[in-house]
Nucleic acid binder design. Sequence first.
DNA 1: TCCGATTTGAGAACAGTGTTCAGAAGGAGC
DNA 2: GCTCCTTCTGAACACTGTTCTCAAATCGGA
Lengths: 252, 252
Amino acid sequence: MSDELPALPWERSRRRAAPARVPLTAERIVDAAYAVLDREGYEKLSMRQVAAELGVAVSALYTHVSGKDELLELMYIRLFKGWELPEPDPARWREQVADFARESRGRLLEHRDLARISMGGMPFSPDVLPQMERLFSLFRTAGLPDYVAAAAGDIISTFIDGFAYEESMWESRQRESDQTAWPDMRASLRQYFADLPPERFPALTALADHMLPESRDERFELGMEIIIRGLASFAEETARNGGGAGDAGGGS
Amino acid sequence: MSDELPALPWERSRRRAAPARVPLTAERIVDAAYAVLDREGYEKLSMRQVAAELGVAVSALYTHVSGKDELLELMYIRLFKGWELPEPDPARWREQVADFARESRGRLLEHRDLARISMGGMPFSPDVLPQMERLFSLFRTAGLPDYVAAAAGDIISTFIDGFAYEESMWESRQRESDQTAWPDMRASLRQYFADLPPERFPALTALADHMLPESRDERFELGMEIIIRGLASFAEETARNGGGAGDAGGGS
DNA sequence: TCCGATTTGAGAACAGTGTTCAGAAGGAGC
DNA sequence: GCTCCTTCTGAACACTGTTCTCAAATCGGA
């Protein structure tokens, strides 16, 4: 090829600026992936799109990330970054569980379609151990028997993830075929249930007014309230059967 | 081509047998799709695979089914076929709800990865109205306030679908990289939690023995028990506050 | 300062995917 | 016999994740 003449100063700095100024890292790839996700949605989140976002060839990604699966996993792990759960307070465990759930859903909903990545995910990464510790500690101080405390996190997470996933699906289905907005949709569905033959569908017609929630938040709150009450009944049971000394909580 | 001489009898029946005996229908496409799903799994369930299963060109499917989305929807709807819920019995509502949940999970697990299709699905098809009626009737006769009865189905389904989805994901992840089987995996994860520094992770180390369930069924049962107890607390509350005679609803 | 070794990005390619479209085959009705 | 219309085919398009070879840039050491 040509001799290795020194480049002109401005060219030199330009040369350095464009290609190598910011080296490609897994971190930057995750950043770009989030940008694509928020802008385009889960369906269009492809390796090529991520590469384009970085102005880089697709194959370049594969030196920093083993594949799309790992990329999604890294995106998922970032969910927990900077999330510090409060010190468990036995007297306020119900609110604390509810707060955890809200925060969890909030983070899931913060980025479009992120819930779809999170599902079936929990790869037991050491990064999430502190949060797990706080959460399980919360269940223990609430007075739950060990076997319930150990399962509660799993069960609640399943509900939250499932809930957020369904929200995400619903939202994207809404988006793609710009149907009527939710208030209209809700009204017409309510009417649909109300107009069913009452002799064949007594329960559906009777409940028509309550079938469709006014907002997803409302449903979520009720769901969590049900689960928390269920947990509380285990705690009360334990307290009655001689859980006794120390932090005998006691319900309402 | 050749003149239209009458075919010989056996040829005639053979001729009818191969290409045109069974006309392509949405029903047969769904059958084939289920066959592919069970054999190959969700990831490899493609229109081309389905077409190959039927010995037909891909594009032929599109005259009977608008696209892959609709095909998945049709597969989902078949889930409910031949599923008759029992007459609600107020005295046994807890068992009946648990039975519904078990049946639901069972149907989801009957076909590999079916849970992955079901999520975010419930397209309010009229086909499922009878089942919905029975379910909501069950919640009403259990003495739940209307706004809870109307949400209970949604909330329980979210949990069940999410649970089955996670099971499906876990199973397929297990399958692809033939890692150690669950008992071994469980043992080593238990050890991992047990070996954490107790001063930093008191709850995790204390709960190590119960963190990983012996079987998924156990976890599922506990999850449903928690939700059912939560629902029960609403029913009791209503009963105390003068639910009294008949089924006088009346919110607070 | 230079030079070899090693890492990192580029470009093309492979085997897939969902979907669409012009055209051929088949059957129904006259 | 002939149309008409539905159904199916084969090829094509625009994508997808991943892998491969090869060139470019970077870094360590002399």
